[in-house]
């Protein structure tokens, strides 16, 4: 247990000395959010001056560690320092994302829990709107971010998640929306798109049949 003032850049960002660039980036963005001036998690614990100094040190840590040259020099300066003993263990570690194969890069995941494989639905091949939302949220992605990248109206993205099939445009557009959504979240398009589209088609037909008088 080291006082904050004595923690090195790695300890401050809560990463190991071997962390790669992606891990550093993720840890930095999490820390940045956690210690932001309006952060829900910290305002009632840290005094303002402590919070300010923490923020400055987080920035410095990131500046140094994200620059390979500066990081090497810094590592050299730490050489004399014993590596930190393994901590109690963090059962909820940030997931290492698999590199995406799709041409459109997925949005950088922020914080993904390592319980993907514990998901009750892991064995299920059905991708409904709620599952899409779960996948998105787990990756720390907001709908607005997907909208920005894909230029799809965020309202439609929300309708996708809420399965408001009647409020969505024609199937050919929806197919494109789902594909773009899945890519952004780093999901497997081949699994997601057909499954969702099947729900979409049957959902629409069922609803039209259920409403006599409506033109088909």
């Amino acid at each position: 247990m080291k006082p904050l003032a004595e923690q090195n850049h790695y300890e401050l960002l809560e990463i190991s000395r071997e962390a790669d660039a992606a891990e550093i980036e993720r840890a930095y963005r999490l820390a940045q959010g956690a210690y932001a001036s309006d952060s829900l998690a910290t305002y009632s614990v840290f005094a303002e001056e402590d919070a300010v100094s923490l923020r400055e040190r987080i920035e410095l840590a990131y500046d140094v560690l994200s620059d390979p040259e500066r990081r090497r020099a810094y590592d050299g300066s730490l050489a004399g320092e014993p590596a930190p003993p393994p901590s109690g263990g963090l059962a909820f570690e940030l997931e290492r994302e698999r590199p995406a194969r799709s041409p459109q890069k997925p949005l950088a995941p922020l914080a993904v829990a390592a319980f993907d494989d514990l998901e009750a639905e892991a064995g299920s091949s059905v991708y409904d709107g709620a599952r899409l939302r779960r996948a998105r949220m787990r990756r720390g992605i907001e709908l607005e971010q997907i909208a920005q990248v894909t230029k799809i109206n965020p309202t439609y993205l929300r309708f996708l998640e809420e399965e408001r099939f009647d409020d969505l445009p024609a199937a050919v557009y929806v197919r494109g929306f789902v594909g773009a959504y899945a890519r952004c979240c780093g999901l497997d398009l081949a699994a997601v798109v057909p499954s969702y589209m099947e729900r979409f088609e049957t959902g629409r037909i069922a609803r039209k049949r259920g409403r006599p008088g409506q033109p088909l």
Partner: peptide
């Protein structure tokens, strides 16, 4: 997803 991050932030605190 911002709400999800609260857990990480509290853990860090």
């Amino acid at each position: 997803s911002e709400d999800i991050k609260l857990g990480f932030a509290v853990r860090s605190v």
